[in-house]
Amino acid sequence: MFRSINNNQSELITIYFEGKALRVQKDLNVATALLEAGISNFRETTIKNENRGPYCMMGVCFDCLINIDGMDNQQSCMVKVSDGMKINRQITRNTSQDEQ
């Protein structure tokens, strides 16, 4: 379980993950905020449909990609949270069968 041990916590803001409101510290990046909220399943891979979450936290591995405010492929370890931000799990493969 991830938790903060900082003496001075920054003020709290609200972000939404899959529609659910989360109160998080405003100076966190998206990946850290989600981990602290107990979320580590950020996306589903395109080829094998496996769950993935953050791995390196320094912008190298691209495993923490997530949908932020409607945009796929955002590096959540490099983006700061902001009030009202809407975050969703990322699934870039085609989810509907009617196409193609």
Partner: peptide, 21 residues
């Protein structure tokens, strides 16, 4: 490019989306 949701279901002269997105 990185993989994106399928949106282009035909090949074109300048842009082609692969099966993986």
């Amino acid at each position: 490019t990185e993989k994106v949701k399928p949106f282009l279901h035909h090949p074109t002269g300048y842009v082609r989306q692969t099966q993986d997105g």
